[in-house]
Lab assay of single mutants.
Amino acid sequence: GVRVRALYDYDGQEQDELSFKAGDELTKLGEEDEQGWCRGRLDSGQLGLYPANYVEAI
């Protein structure tokens, strides 16, 4: 996976979405899909989806 850092807070709206705060680091686990979602893993171990444009590569 690729380490990325959140640029903005994001509150997951669905069960399969991650929630994070600006500045949090997570691991991107795949390329974004056509809707702009990426699969990732928080350092807590939680897996889920997040909007790709909310993070930057570290």
Rank of each mutant, 00 (worst) to 15 (best):
D33R: 07
G12V: 02
D16Q: 11
D24K: 03
L42M: 09
Y8V: 10
G48K: 01
L47P: 06
K28F: 14
F20C: 01
V55D: 02
Q35T: 13
Y10R: 09
V2F: 15
L18A: 01
V55R: 01
E17T: 13
D33T: 10
Q46Y: 06
L49V: 14
Q35M: 14
Y8S: 12
G40K: 00
G36F: 04
W37L: 12
S44F: 02
D16T: 14
K28Y: 13
R41V: 11
K28M: 15
D24A: 10
I58S: 09
R3H: 02
Y8H: 06
E14I: 11
E31K: 11
L49E: 08
E32L: 08
N53V: 06
E31R: 10
L26Y: 00
Q13W: 04
R3Y: 02
E25G: 07
R39P: 10
E32N: 02
E56R: 11
D16N: 07
V2L: 10
L49K: 15
R39Q: 14
V2W: 09
R3T: 05
G23C: 05
K21P: 00
E31Y: 06
W37A: 08
Q46S: 09
L49W: 08
L47F: 10
G30L: 05
S44A: 08
E32A: 15
L18E: 02
L29E: 12
S44D: 15
G40D: 00
Q13I: 08
R5T: 15
Y8N: 07
D24C: 14
Q13S: 09
T27G: 02
Y50K: 02
L18R: 01
A57D: 15
N53P: 13
E56C: 09
L26H: 01
V2R: 09
G1R: 08
V2S: 11
G12E: 05
K21Y: 04
E25R: 08
E14S: 12
G36A: 04
Q35E: 15
L49G: 07
A52G: 14
Q46A: 15
V2D: 12
A6E: 01
E56F: 04
R3L: 04
A57G: 13
Q35A: 13
Q15G: 10
P51S: 07
C38L: 02
G12N: 10
G1H: 15
L29I: 13
R39S: 12
Y50E: 01
R3K: 08
L18W: 03
Q35N: 10
L29W: 05
L29M: 14
R5D: 01
D33I: 05
V2G: 11
G36D: 03
G40R: 00
N53I: 04
D16L: 13
V55Q: 01
A57R: 11
D24W: 07
F20W: 00
A6Q: 03
Q15E: 11
Y50A: 03
L42H: 15
E25T: 13
D9Y: 00
E32T: 12
V2T: 10
S44E: 08
Y8Q: 10
L42W: 00
G40Y: 00
D11F: 06
Y8L: 08
Q13T: 12
D24V: 07
S19W: 04
L42F: 03
D24M: 15
L47T: 15
G36P: 05
R5S: 05
E56T: 11
G30Y: 06
E17D: 05
Y8C: 04
P51L: 09
V4M: 11
A6H: 00
L18Q: 02
V2M: 15
F20G: 02
G23T: 04
G48M: 00
L18C: 01
D16M: 07
L47H: 13
Y10V: 04
Y8D: 07
L47V: 13
G40Q: 02
L47G: 12
F20D: 01
L29D: 04
K28Q: 10
K21M: 10
K28G: 06
D33C: 13
Q35W: 08
G45V: 00
Q46W: 08
D43N: 10
D16G: 14
A57W: 07
A52W: 06
A22K: 12
E31P: 15
K28I: 05
Y54R: 14
L26D: 00
S44L: 03
Y50V: 11
R39K: 12
E32G: 12
A22F: 09
Q35V: 05
D9V: 01
G23V: 01
R41W: 05
D16A: 09
L7N: 06
V55N: 01
E32S: 13
Q46C: 12
E32Y: 06
Y8R: 11
K28W: 08
E32M: 12
L18P: 02
K21E: 08
A57L: 13
G1W: 07
E17F: 14
D24G: 05
G30Q: 06
D16R: 09
Q15C: 07
E56S: 09
R41K: 14
N53R: 13
D16C: 08
Y10P: 03
D24H: 05
L47D: 15
